[in-house]
Write a protein that binds this DNA or RNA. Structure first.
Length: 274
DNA sequence: AGCACA
């Protein structure tokens, strides 16, 4: 029978599956109801591999949720680990709850759309509102049409949102259409070598190696002095192992730290074996 | 904000 085939699709596991490598989108709940899309965007915009995000007012109970799309699964997981459970609003003590989304955000290319999108399903009335904005200082736009309302596109987007109530819909694609390119946060590729910065001037290789050796898959460490401050490269066997070390060691303060904790990213290229 | 080694 084909019955078993169906069963696996309907397992309702209490455990969150963080290992589905297809998923590059995060689902964020626990947001205060006055949250702004700009705040969500600012949460994620400097995370490696971040693409776009959207804020969504659900029809049900007027809850607010958000979706954050990344360029790859590992980057999404890294952001998940580092932001899950953090207090979002010190006033209310509200805490972010982040999981992998059930489906990836669909990309629909709207020319001139911004880095984040708001979809408001709160009222059944026809006063649905879709806001497209890039006014957070993050992107300099040379296209003034970005900030105007696209009335005819609203219908399209809201219809899209309703097609799948709980899944992500089209995130805006600003990066690909950004001409002079704030070369900063483009497609960040996961890599099994990590780039480690924000080290104190007298951080030693041994000090770093001692920390890193606790992590499975750790291979090799290289340090370079650059313009005074040292940076390091740490190579791992697998991307997943590098990711784990990155998310757990992110912002860690060493004895030698004098300017805040470690800043760790995927290296731009894998360490050569020599 | 800082990414080498070949």
């Amino acid at each position: 029978m084909a019955q078993q085939t169906y069963d696996r699709f309907y397992i309702e596991s209490p455990l969150q599956d963080h290992s589905n490598p297809e998923i590059k989108t995060l689902f964020i709940s626990g947001l205060p109801d006055d949250v702004k899309a700009r705040e969500i965007h600012n949460l994620f915009r400097h995370r490696p591999g971040f693409d776009t995000c959207q804020l969504k007012y659900t029809g049900r109970g007027n809850q607010v949720v958000a979706f954050a799309a990344f360029f790859n699964h590992q980057a999404a997981v890294a952001a998940l680990y580092s932001l899950n459970g953090v207090k979002f609003d010190p006033e209310t003590g509200s805490t972010l709850h982040i999981e992998l989304a059930r489906t990836n955000s669909r990309r629909k290319h709207h020319p001139g759309s911004g880095p984040y999108v708001v979809i408001d399903n709160r009222t059944r009335k026809s006063l649905h509102k879709l806001e497209v904005s890039s006014d957070d200082g993050g992107y300099e736009s040379d296209d003034p049409s970005e900030t105007r309302q696209h009335d005819s596109q609203d219908e399209d987007d809201v219809a899209n949102a309703k097609r799948d109530e709980s899944a992500a819909v089209d995130g805006a694609e600003a990066i690909a259409s950004n001409p002079e390119g704030k070369a900063a946060e483009r497609n960040v590729q996961a890599c099994s070598t990590l780039f480690i910065a924000n080290l104190g001037p007298n951080c030693t290789k041994d000090e770093l190696k001692q920390i890193l050796s606790q992590y499975p898959g750790f291979n090799a460490l290289k340090m370079r002095g650059r313009g005074g401050l040292p940076v390091a490269f740490a190579d791992f066997e697998e991307i997943e192992q590098a990711t784990k070390a990155m998310v757990e060691l992110q912002d860690t303060e060493l004895e030698s730290s004098d300017r805040g904790g470690l800043h760790i990213e995927y290296a731009r290229s894998k360490m050569r074996k020599q």
